[in-house]
């Protein structure tokens, strides 16, 4: 501050006298704002992805340093996967999850169309239809496993009324996975429903009127007029459903813990089991399973990013 009087007060007239920061403010500011976010994200998300690839080439029990205590075995873990029967079951189950989970999209659309009316109390109905999505998957899993119970469960009480049952869905290796997927569809359908309800709000009424005058009836109207306008909602529903299907872990862990006889395992669950829950932590093998899951996901991520990138281009 000693030389403060010597500094001229006319900043604007002499831009060169401004500090280096002031002159480059517009260029530097975004990086300063990004820095904490990028550091956090790199440390906890970006770098660990690559580390997982590295770990998958080792035999390592998670103790000590990977390169010292672990043993480099190249593609050994992947070779073992190729002959691992449990891995195969998990992979097939993941495909079932992917395909059946997508049912949430048409189901959600169906419920959205059903609820898209203006009668008294409809807002409350919409919220109540939606709120399974807000409940944690752990509780959804518990709720459904009790619902399915062979003697105490309500499901068997209901189908018992029409003379069927009792069925032990989660105890039957052929049915257990479908039982869990049904539980997963419950909140997921609610999510898709809310996306479509929002989308339906924005459908252009003039187009519908025009189509009505042209004589378009229910199904044709839906297919040619409504669904094309719902495309953004469908895209998001697709993205969240695919991600949800591949991430499925909580429900399986809660409802069957992978059983009966390992029939309900999926990759994410099997990976957790191998790396953390079994005797002797097999980190390398677990990481190899995670890499396979990641590669499957990569196809979808690439597609999602491509679609979003196209939109960004269009917006400019």
């Amino acid at each position: 501050m000693t030389n403060a009087p010597a500094v001229p007060t006319t900043h604007a007239a002499q831009p060169d006298r401004r500090s280096w920061y002031k002159r480059n403010e517009i260029a530097i500011t975004p990086w300063l704002f990004l820095l904490p976010g990028i550091l956090f994200f790199a440390a906890y998300v970006v770098i660990p992805i690559f580390q997982s690839f590295q770990v998958s080439f080792y035999r390592w029990d998670g103790l000590g340093d990977l390169t010292e205590q672990g043993q480099f075995i190249g593609l050994g873990n992947y070779q073992e996967l190729a002959t691992d029967r449990n891995f195969e079951i998990s992979l097939v189950n993941n495909i079932k999850w992917l395909l059946l989970y997508l049912l949430a999209i048409p189901l959600g659309l169906f419920i959205a169309l059903f609820l898209n009316q203006t009668v008294t109390g409809i807002r409350l109905y919409k919220s109540l239809f939606f709120f399974p999505f807000v409940i944690s998957q752990v509780v959804v899993g518990l709720v459904f496993s009790w619902f399915y119970l062979p003697s105490e469960g309500l499901l068997n009480a209901v189908i018992g009324l029409v003379g069927l049952g009792p069925v032990n869905i989660l105890g039957d290796p052929d049915m257990a996975t479908y039982g869990i997927i049904a539980a997963g569809l419950w909140p997921q359908t609610a999510y898709c429903m809310i996306l479509y309800l929002t989308g339906l709000n924005a459908v252009d009424p003039e187009q519908i009127e025009a189509a009505r005058l042209d004589g378009a009836k229910k199904w044709k109207m839906l297919w040619y007029i409504i669904i094309p306008q719902l495309k953004p909602a469908t895209f998001i529903a697709f993205v969240v459903t695919i991600i949800g299907a591949l991430r499925s872990f909580d429900l399986i862990s809660i409802m069957t813990n992978g059983g009966p006889f390992g029939s309900t395992r999926v990759l994410s669950f099997y990976m957790y089991e191998k790396a953390l829950a079994e005797f002797g932590f097999r980190m390398g093998y677990g990481a190899a399973i995670a890499v396979v899951l990641f590669v499957i996901m990569l196809f979808f991520i690439a597609y999602f990013l491509y679609s979003m990138w196209r939109d960004e281009r269009g917006a400019r």
């Binding site: 994200f41 998300v45 660990p48 998670g62 991430r247 990976m271 957790y272 790396a275 991520i301």
Partner: peptide, 22 residues
């Protein structure tokens, strides 16, 4: 921007071993 989006889509099991280690 796309790095953030892509990271958000990742199946988080792939982060499990390194994040636990970290």
């Amino acid at each position: 921007f796309f790095m953030f989006i892509a990271g958000n889509f990742v199946p988080f099991q792939i982060l499990m071993v390194p994040v636990r280690d970290l």
